[in-house]
């Protein structure tokens, strides 16, 4: 229903739908909106549960810079991100 409305009004889907939005800035920052929670947190690997599927961040010295109910900022030497829909 919402998706149809978004298509019809030609607005970005993430602003209406509760879908995750991932922003990667260089290899330094990852902003994740609409995430559900942390599944695994290690120095070199961080797994997040998203509203749909999940996200795995690989790297070194990963730090959760800030965390809010729907938004998380991850910092570190990021070598890869893997998004998977399940």
């Amino acid at each position: 229903m919402k998706k149809m409305a978004a298509d019809m009004l030609e607005v970005p889907k993430d602003s209406l739908l509760n879908v995750p939005r991932i922003t990667l800035i260089g290899g330094m920052h990852v902003f994740v909106e609409n995430f559900q929670g942390i599944v695994e947190f290690r120095d070199d690997r961080l797994r997040l549960a998203l509203t749909q599927g999940g996200l795995t961040v690989h790297g070194r010295e990963l730090v959760i810079k800030t965390i809010q109910p729907s938004e998380v900022v991850i910092e570190g030497n990021i070598s890869g991100i893997h998004y998977h829909e399940t």
Binding site: G37, I38, E40, F41, D43, L62, V63, I64, T66, I67
Partner: peptide, 28 residues
Amino acid sequence: VPELINAATARGVALWEIRQVKEGVYRA
């Protein structure tokens, strides 16, 4: 600890600069 972070965030307790010091030990 990841579970704790989730629970805290859900209750509006802001943690920041969370990092893993070693296996099972975190600093925030």
